[in-house]
Design a protein around this nucleic acid. Sequence first.
DNA 1: CGTCCCCTTGAGCAGAATCAAGCCTAGTGG
DNA 2: CCACTAGGCTTGATTCTGCTCAAGGGGACG
Lengths: 226, 226
Amino acid sequence: MAALSADESLFMRSFKIAQDSCSAASILIAEGDPHGKLYTVYSGWAHRFKVLSDGRRQILDILLPGDFIGLDSILSSEFTYSVEAITTLTYDVYNAARLAELYATQPGLGLRLLRIAAVERQRLEMHLTSIGPRSADERMAAFLLNCHARLRARGLVDGNTFPLPLTQQHMADYLGITLVHTNRVLRRLQERDLVALKQREVTLRNIEELKLLALADDQSAGALAG
Amino acid sequence: MAALSADESLFMRSFKIAQDSCSAASILIAEGDPHGKLYTVYSGWAHRFKVLSDGRRQILDILLPGDFIGLDSILSSEFTYSVEAITTLTYDVYNAARLAELYATQPGLGLRLLRIAAVERQRLEMHLTSIGPRSADERMAAFLLNCHARLRARGLVDGNTFPLPLTQQHMADYLGITLVHTNRVLRRLQERDLVALKQREVTLRNIEELKLLALADDQSAGALAG
DNA sequence: CGTCCCCTTGAGCAGAATCAAGCCTAGTGG
DNA sequence: CCACTAGGCTTGATTCTGCTCAAGGGGACG
């Protein structure tokens, strides 16, 4: 993407409020919180999720360095989801109240944010398409490929090995299966030598086979990467 | 929502290309189509969906009168999903190429579209939360309540009875279960006297109980209605 | 050294898929 | 006007994926 103009840079600087950090497992945003702020992840992993009234949890999206949090907050007065840090997290904070002003006076920046929101939305739709018709093994393959593609697209990772700080409970809640089953799925993938797991680190040992399993065409991998 | 200003009305009129219609089961948009156009549904039902390479289909969203189709198309050069008419459909067509111009010169309209996109996104997130952790019966209950709430919010329906032109195959693909199982789930709900089905028409006979089953708090019903 | 969190594994069960028919209704053509 | 057809609905029997319950293991940290 093209660099910002001088004017745009100036606006972004005035737009920003602070830089901050929090420890793993802390709740950055709770569903129902008033939406005053907008965040970007600077380092670490986080996730967006919703909780049903009986406690079951659905993880909507994994947030990586560079991702926005709360871009949709122009709409409603409250957050409709929660955000939890997976690792120690550092992030920038912006003034959401000025989002409308941004769209009005900085159409270039506004379009950028629209594009980012559209990528997020596409990722949601891929996720839905993954959870709806696919089996647990297929979902897991798609998930791992997706993480890998996103990390690579940001230059955070080079080869076929990457860090995966999620617990199996996180993965279960992301994929819509139980913790126990997640464990067995991972075991199966390892037995088939499709992936190797070691200390919160994943190696994709047979990407072609994984793609076949995930029914992921190259197109979807690209769409997810952004 | 407030009425359009004179200037905004003028722009919308110049923005619009045509009004058109198509018959039930026709494909309005196929995944991969170039994105030149933007649509609004005028009358009838449609759905947005994705197809996996082995033919399994996931319905992402149900489109009702007043809904936009292709709002996200500023981003990418191609549609990332397909759209099929469920009933005979009439719709307005707009020039997507001018979307960027709209955002730049009509910030009021731009914000409106952003809000609409945000509601769509929230609906997607509700859908994901519905499909991830919930059982088939719970999903169905949530789905029927959701349809009802959306139709009511638009004044398309008054009491607890509403038309539901979807086939059971549609519902199956929306909920992420099989056709056969959809049939059994509907039967169960009827036996428990929670809903009544008759000729593509649904009556919610016990909304409180349905909400309990769907684990839907009032908040989520509201969010979905938009 | 104990505790907490996470991972692992087994046994049994159930929700949902698959396979396989048969039915009903509306539309079509002879 | 009736026979035929096609699409959608219904139901049973069987299989299997994924859930639940239950227990034990291992590492990190105070």
